[in-house]
Amino acid sequence: MIVIMAGGRSSRMGAEKPVLRVGGVPMLLRVYREAGKVDEVLVALSRNTPRTRELCLREGLPFVETPGKGYVEDVTYLLRELGPFISVSSDLPFVKGGDFRAMKRAFDGRTSLTGVLPLKLVPGDLNPVTYRGYAVVGLNAVGGEGERFLELSNPLLALNVNTPEDLKLADRIAKLVGR
């Protein structure tokens, strides 16, 4: 199962990120469509995201309510309720079905995987979170035993939309790549 994390406060953006449009399409729907090519998908909401809930109801997207206290707390809650799963941030507008397939193939259902990109693949105008020479992306597998990195190859995974400037860049990229 793939769970789209869409219950955060979006404090840096100042608006609910899942409903913001990239290339004319709400980011949540972009992520949902790609994830749905690979597995069953569930959207994780919280009281922090009423507009995202409305979008899910309008589009018929299945969702689950989380406590909404923070990312780690929500992931822990979901692991307890659902068992192991693949998680993806709703603000990764260029995630592709192939990225989910790579994560699913590598996930043994026990050891958590953190999706990363080698820094040499990160476009120069992006400023991703880095750790040990990698850009950390918002695509992960959640298990209960330890953790390891999974190198991915889609350079646009480095664009996690957190600020209005990121949103403008994502919209420009969407127009260039036609999606």
Rank of each mutant, 00 (worst) to 15 (best):
Val75Phe: 00
Thr52Lys: 05
Glu40Gln: 13
Ser112Leu: 06
Glu81Gln: 12
Leu121Pro: 00
Phe149Tyr: 15
Lys168Ile: 14
Glu59Thr: 01
Asp91Cys: 04
Leu159Trp: 10
Gly23Lys: 06
Pro118Leu: 08
Leu57Ser: 06
Leu176Asn: 04
Leu126Ile: 08
Gly60Phe: 07
Leu28Thr: 05
Ile86His: 05
Val137Asn: 02
Gly8Lys: 03
Asp74Phe: 03
Gly115Asn: 07
Lys96Gln: 15
Thr76Ile: 08
Ser87Gln: 12
Gly143Trp: 11
Ala174Trp: 01
Phe94Trp: 00
Val137Ser: 06
Ala102Asn: 09
Leu45Gly: 04
Ala102Thr: 10
Gly138Val: 05
Glu65Val: 10
Gly133His: 04
Asn160Ile: 02
Gly36Gln: 13
Glu73Gln: 12
Val88Gln: 07
Val136Asp: 01
Asp125Trp: 07
Pro18Arg: 00
Tyr77Ile: 03
Leu55Phe: 02
Leu28Glu: 12
Val3Ser: 06
Gly23Ala: 08
Tyr71Glu: 14
Arg21Ile: 02
Leu113Thr: 06
Val177Pro: 00
Lys120Asn: 13
Arg58Phe: 08
Met103Gly: 06
Gly146Pro: 05
Ser89Ala: 14
Phe149Thr: 02
Arg132Glu: 15
Pro164Arg: 15
Ser10Val: 05
Val31Tyr: 07
Ala135Met: 05
Met1Arg: 11
Leu119His: 02
Gly24Leu: 01
Gly143Met: 12
Lys175Asp: 15
Gly133Gln: 08
Thr114Asn: 03
Asp108Ile: 07
Arg51Asn: 12
Glu59Met: 05
Arg21Ala: 15
Val129Pro: 06
Asp99Gln: 04
Ser87Arg: 10
Ala44Tyr: 00
Lys69Gly: 00
Arg110Ile: 07
Asp171Glu: 15
